[in-house]
Nucleic acid binder design. Structure first.
Length: 328
DNA sequence: TTGTGTTTTATTGCCTCC
DNA sequence: GGAGGCAATAAAACACAA
């Protein structure tokens, strides 16, 4: 008897619910356009008369929830129709608050989501509800608020994650691009050195343009990394090889304009970490390949920002980024 | 009309605080 | 120990598609 149940709720707060209306009409009971609950107004003054039955019902019943003495206020005798009997048994079940009551409670909740005892009593009086009902409503409302809040937090984190993921993928692409560039330059260097070597051996009297210097050699990985001399790099035509590694926007350019990025910024992925390389290797790598403005400070020299909760390594292990960069 | 999913009201049990 | 809060849950009320 879903309709009856629904009517049980509706009748008491909203007026003449269709189900109840039909039911009452079949019994030749009054179902005026006026809210039926007008019949149930309790003695207590209330700002929400329409809601009063919700409390007055139990008041009238003297706390005995299964009595139906209130029904006699209709002037009916005990020979009520069974449907009506069923109906009022339903009426003893849960009833929803009126829109006005909910609105009032919502406003109170906005002001203060916790309920002081005095306020609870006052609200109960104003709304014609039991203080217990007020307390329950606030409790449930807090639970709903918390759920909503969790959903919001989740969405925020999700958006942030998506953004970081895009950044990370862009960095991967950039890394691949830079690796290709380095390989290209390495090939050209080797070729040039080879040519120079041949020239030197065949024409010993010929002087090179540049004075001989001790080449600074880097070795990211002893057995696979090419030997690159700074001297050669200086004279190399880098026009096509101008890398965005050295762009001001480049993550490594930590001294160019802005300091370390916040977590969430794409450059944050370049935050230096502890190295797998030896210190010598790191130093050599830094000196040989990167401009001075692009050398990562040592961990002990810089107060690195710590991402909330934990270190933000974007899924990387806590390793040296040079290793990450140069490794496949 | 009915089945089903969602929302709302209410209960229960546990925990914390005074 | 009582009051009040919260999480989990039940169940009524309600919405809606088929």
């Amino acid at each position: 008897m879903e309709g009856g149940g629904g009517g049980g709720g509706g009748m008491f707060y909203g007026g003449c619910v269709p189900n109840m209306s039909a039911l009452l009409q079949t019994q030749d009971l009054p179902c005026s356009p006026q809210p039926v609950d007008a019949f149930f107004i309790s003695g207590s003054s209330t700002s929400f008369m329409g809601a009063s039955p919700m409390v007055s019902f139990q008041d009238i019943c003297g706390g005995k929830r299964h009595e139906r003495s209130f029904f006699r206020t209709f002037g009916q005798d005990d020979n009520v129709d069974e449907d009506l009997d069923d109906y009022f048994q339903q009426a003893e079940k849960k009833r929803r608050l009126t829109a006005e009551q909910v609105q009032f409670l919502e406003k109170s909740f906005e002001l203060e989501n916790k309920l002081e005892p005095e306020k609870k009593i006052q609200l109960a009086k104003d709304l014609g509800l039991q203080p217990r009902q007020i307390a329950i409503w606030f409790q449930n409302r807090r639970a709903r608020w918390k759920t909503k809040q969790l959903e919001k937090d989740f969405e925020t984190l999700q958006a942030r994650y998506d953004s970081l993921k895009v950044d990370y993928e862009n960095l991967l692409k950039e890394r691949e691009k830079l690796k290709a560039e380095v390989l290209h330059l390495t090939d050209r260097l080797l070729l040039r050195e080879k040519e120079q070597g041949e020239l030197g051996s065949s024409n010993t009297g010929t002087e090179l343009e540049t004075p001989p210097q001790e080449p600074i050699v880097y070795s990211a990985s002893e057995d696979e990394a090419p030997q690159i001399s700074i001297d050669a790099l200086k004279h190399e035509d880098l026009g096509s090889a101008k890398s965005d590694v050295f762009d001001s926007d480049s993550p490594c350019n930590i001294n160019a304009g802005h300091s370390f990025a916040e977590p969430g910024d794409s450059s944050y992925a370049f935050e230096p970490e502890n190295s797998d390389l030896s210190q010598d290797e790191e130093d050599t790598l830094s000196k040989s390949l990167l401009p001075t403005s692009c050398i990562f400070p040592k961990m002990e020299d810089v107060d690195y920002p710590t991402p909330p909760g934990n270190s933000c390594n974007f899924g990387f292990h806590v390793e040296d980024h040079a290793t990450w960069f140069w490794s496949s």
